[in-house]
Design a protein around this nucleic acid. Structure first.
Length: 346
RNA sequence: CCGCCCUUAGCUCAGACUGGUAGAGCAGUCGACUGUAGAUCGACUUGUCCCCCGUUCAAAUCGGGGAGGGCGGACCA
């Protein structure tokens, strides 16, 4: 595959690339390595799924992919996961991620899985972390940290420490490319600043867009209605899609369209299938789309009405999620132990 | 070690001085209107007032004790 084609594959559907020139140079040289870290906190959802499609792109482009299950991060970042649930949630994440990669049309066996505690407690790593801590101000780290930590008037030390760890992760995993949601930008910009002082080159950063929520605005982990969960059955998906914010002809903040563009169409493309919208004769009968661009154009021109699009979108989203849901629900212990509050023994 | 502040609805907080078992905004739910949703109207819901003891006819409110959280000071060998 030509470098230009690989570059296109790697950068499509991204929010930002820092920098494209550096990325192109890496690809021209050979097979670079990329990593993405997932902190095993809340249940995985459709937003994570779109990043799995990107992992498939990376593999196709000849990039070595490592997935980090960042268990320590999950606790250090505002105690999003209780310490004693890290094992269970790490297991659940591993299973869910493999399921999504598989459903996204890639082979999980081609991906290297690593868990944070596998190496983040090693002496070398720990020593470098302390060195970094000595050289980084609280304000600098807070500026890089997650929103909850950044906006806090009195952040916990853990929240300030993990941005440094995440920077060290890049080196420890020998990654040339750091991939993550655009919310990770602050941390990786810090990494690019300080990593050269620790014997590693600044990573090329690949940022995924964050999906809009179904209720308008940003998707929120705590707002059930704003997102589709991996365990949602077709009925629930249909309900959530029906309740979604979706103004006629409007593409801004339209989660329904984003799901189709970033998740459904890439998978349909891979399978060589079309997107069919069933529409009553009264409104002109069924519609068929072979590309997201065509669909968006007709949505913008108002030829395609939201009330017709929603049920179709729900059906396709369900079909994409189904295998993952089945895989997870076939192992009820996995969810019960990771999220005793929601799935615990009744 | 010392001092000060905070803890009330899912969230942010008011109410406490001058005791009468609690409110606002946002969120949520339900209708109306739209060929969806939103917006807009209309209606509705929400609570161990951090815990314990005491005073009182009556405590979110007053007194004492405790827990959790935050901020600052001191010490700097």
């Amino acid at each position: 595959m030509e470098t230009a084609e690989r570059l296109d594959l790697v950068t499509r559907h991204t929010e930002e690339v820092v920098t494209t020139d550096e990325l192109e140079a890496l690809l021209a040289e050979g097979s670079p390595s990329a990593y993405i870290g997932y902190a095993p906190t809340g249940e995985m959802h459709i937003g994570h799924f779109t990043t799995m499609r990107k992992l498939a792109d990376l593999l196709s482009a000849g990039v070595d992919v490592t997935v980090l299950i960042a268990d320590l991060h999950a606790h250090l970042d505002d105690e999003k996961s209780p310490f004693d649930l890290l094992d269970a949630r790490s297991e659940y994440y591993r299973e869910a991620i493999e399921g999504m990669i598989d459903a996204a049309g890639a082979d999980p066996d081609e991906i290297t899985f690593v868990r944070g505690t596998d190496y983040e407690l090693d002496e070398e790593y720990t020593l470098e972390l302390y060195r970094m801590a000595a050289e980084t101000t609280i304000a600098r780290s807070q500026r890089a940290a997650s929103e909850v930590v950044r906006d806090s008037d009195s952040p916990a030390l853990g929240g300030l420490l993990y941005p440094l760890m995440q920077s060290l992760d890049v080196k420890a995993l020998e990654a040339d490319i750091a991939y993550g949601g655009i919310d990770q930008r602050g941390i990786y910009m810090l990494s690019r600043e300080i990593l050269p002082d620790y014997g590693w080159t600044e990573p090329v950063c690949l940022f995924a867009p964050l999906l809009s929520g179904l209720t308008g605005g940003k998707m929120s982990a705590s707002d059930e209605g704003s997102k589709v969960n991996l365990t949602d059955d077709p009925g629930t998906v249909a309900e959530k899609l029906n309740a979604a914010y979706c103004p006629m002809g409007e593409t801004v903040d339209n989660g329904v369209l984003e799901y189709l563009e970033l998740l459904v169409f890439p998978i349909l493309d891979e399978r060589g299938e079309s997107f069919v919208v069933e529409r009553p004769e009264q409104y002109g009968g069924d519609l068929v789309y072979d590309s997201y661009g065509d669909l968006e154009a007709e949505f913008v021109s108002e030829e395609l009405h939201p009330a017709d699009l929603k049920p179709a979108a729900a059906e396709y989203i369900s079909s994409v999620i189904d295998p993952v849901r089945e895989r997870l629900t076939a192992q009820p212990d996995l969810l019960a132990e990771a999220y005793p509050e929601s799935y615990g023994d009744e």
